[in-house]
């Protein structure tokens, strides 16, 4: 029986899962849309991984969960490692590119930069207060232009003369875009301009004040877009590495962290048959009105989150 570890990355847009063995080799992976329902997405990921590994005779010794829904999912499936996506991404990427100095990550709603030195995270930053220059912006503009987001990169690369689009703010970028479209620019030039705007926005906001050194690895959903990759290469004058497993780095990293943690408990795939439910209510004990989130597993309460003080818990733990 092979000893394995499961890593799950539950993002706002997509949910990723990998199974690795002791030497960090990916045995099986899965990538699908979260569709606003992380619990269901995780069940689907686990089901798919189970199907893919049925013949391999594996034993899962630990589970790691990362991504924005990590707390909920971690409780739900009894993970032994729940960690933030920055650490997970750094660990995952290091296992594939040990020399990496800069990780650029642009996802659906957030973007981050991680600076490493000798395999150690030295600095990081994440977008704050604003989602300009993330995947969500690109996909909404793709819709406006009537282009499939998957084709965006291929169209952008064709352009010889990208238009200039304001990069600071999504709303202004959009009005710029409308103006350019109405003045009759070619679609590919506009799309290439957008890709440049994403890169510039990222470098001006998230990476502001950080020294970007090669080798640079680019990850996250937006890294699949060749236009943005090209825009980064042009601006930074460095080669940008995009791995085809780039979208799995978070899941891979958390699986490795789970392997390294001392706690471990065997896990069965039965979890997908259980019923999970989240109920929210407002605690009325003071004017804070905390939104208390309760997680139920087969009608039994397994966790309560969201309380600012102990009073919110009283009625659950007596």
């Amino acid at each position: 029986m092979r000893e394995c570890y499961l890593g799950i990355d539950v993002g706002s847009i997509s949910t990723k899962g990998v199974i690795i063995d002791k030497s960090n080799e990916i045995l099986s992976s899965c990538y699908l849309w979260t569709e606003g329902n992380p619990m269901d997405a995780v069940k689907r990921v686990i089901n798919e991984l189970r199907r893919k590994t049925e013949e391999k005779n594996i034993l899962i010794l630990g589970i790691g969960v990362t991504g924005s829904a990590r707390k909920l999912i971690g409780r739900m499936i009894g993970a032994n490692m729940v960690r933030n996506e920055i650490t997970a991404h750094a660990v995952g990427t290091l296992s594939i590119f040990p020399e990496v100095r800069t990780i650029i990550e642009i996802g659906g709603q957030d973007s981050k930069i991680i600076i490493l030195e000798d395999g150690i995270v030295m600095d990081y930053a994440m977008n704050t207060l604003c989602a300009a220059g993330t995947g969500a912006f690109l996909s909404s503009q793709a819709k406006r232009l009537g282009v499939d987001i998957e084709d965006f990169g291929d169209i952008a690369v064709k352009s010889g003369n990208p238009v200039k689009v304001a990069a600071r703010c999504t709303v202004f970028a959009e009005s710029d875009l409308v103006h350019k479209a109405q003045s009759g620019y070619k679609k590919e030039d506009i799309i290439a301009g957008l890709c440049n705007a994403i890169a510039n926005n990222y470098l001006n906001n998230v990476a502001r004040g950080k020294k970007i050194k090669a080798p640079i690895v680019f990850q996250g959903g937006v890294s699949k877009n060749k236009g943005v990759v090209k825009a980064f290469e042009r601006t930074l004058n460095e080669k940008i590495h995009v791995d085809e497993r780039g979208h799995l780095m978070g899941a891979l990293g958390i699986a490795i962290l789970s392997k390294e943690s001392d706690l471990s408990e065997p896990f069965s795939f039965q979890i997908t048959d259980m019923k999970f439910e989240t109920k929210g209510y407002e605690c009325m004990n003071c004017p804070n009105n905390c939104e208390i989130v309760c997680i139920y597993k087969n009608e039994d309460i397994i966790d309560v989150m969201g309380n600012k003080c102990e009073r919110g818990l009283e009625q659950f733990y007596k």
């Binding site: 924005s68 960690r83 933030n84 996506e85 920055i86 650490t87 150690i120 995270v121 030295m122 600095d123 990081y124 994440m126």
Partner: peptide
């Protein structure tokens, strides 16, 4: 805030 704090803590530990 929690995510960023946790990442900051991890980073310090790694350093």
């Amino acid at each position: 805030i929690r995510t960023r704090l946790e990442a900051f803590y991890d980073m310090i530990k790694m350093r």
